[in-house]
């Protein structure tokens, strides 16, 4: 794939087919950790690290171990194993390097394991038969899209907190409505390419 192809893949992955707003993956942390901007950014960065690493490892495992041994059917189990181990390591490293962020992310940190965006990217890499460069671009820009949207969303939510929201809409309902409007806006980017 040419450079321009890679750029358009990056743009598509990050904006047009955004994980959260277009593919509805990773909604749980998206709603759970978006109340404060600092923790939202922390979550986004942790997800970028996990998805990029797990993308590279699972892709290599598939190409060089599972595929030659005709064990493609094992991919889901192997991928989950890799992701769980990676999240565990990220957790340990964060606990040491940034205890404040570790505290702020709380239960959502181990829950990255079950963030379907992580497994989703690993599986899409295989399904679309990406080569190495495409895989790197895809596994980097999908979580960057996650980071972008969760940051925007947390800023919106901080503003909404100070707004006079009707009682019945307080909390999650207004968050979901905001997310829906955000998704509609992002869906228009599809016309760009």
């Amino acid at each position: 794939m040419s450079i321009s192809g890679l750029i358009s893949l990056a743009f598509t992955a990050m904006i047009i087919e955004n994980v959260i707003l277009n593919q509805f993956l990773g909604i749980c942390p998206f709603l759970g950790v978006s109340k404060k901007r600092s923790s939202a950014v922390g979550m986004g960065v942790a997800v970028v690290a996990v998805i990029l690493l797990s993308g590279i490892i699972t892709w290599s495992l598939y190409r060089f171990v599972l595929s030659p041994l005709k064990m493609e059917y094992m991919q889901t189990i192997v991928f989950i194993l890799v992701i769980a181990a990676l999240v565990q390591m990220v957790e340990l490293i964060l606990k040491k390097t940034s205890p404040a962020l570790y505290k702020a992310l709380g239960i959502y940190l181990p829950l990255i394991t079950t963030n379907c965006a992580v497994l989703g990217v690993a599986l899409i890499n295989i399904r679309k038969d990406y080569n190495f460069a495409e895989m790197i671009v895809f596994s980097l820009f999908i979580p960057l899209g996650f980071l972008l949207v969760i940051t925007i969303f947390s800023m919106l939510r901080e503003k909404i907190d100070t707004a006079p929201v009707p009682k019945a809409f307080k909390g999650t309902p207004i968050a979901l409505i905001t997310a829906a409007i955000l998704a509609m806006i992002f869906s228009r980017f599809g016309g760009l390419i």
Partner: peptide
């Protein structure tokens, strides 16, 4: 498959 899975698990466990 069991061996391969075990090996992958072992390496990951070691890393953790």
């Amino acid at each position: 498959p069991a061996l391969v899975l075990g090996a992958i698990g072992f390496v990951l466990g070691l890393l953790i």
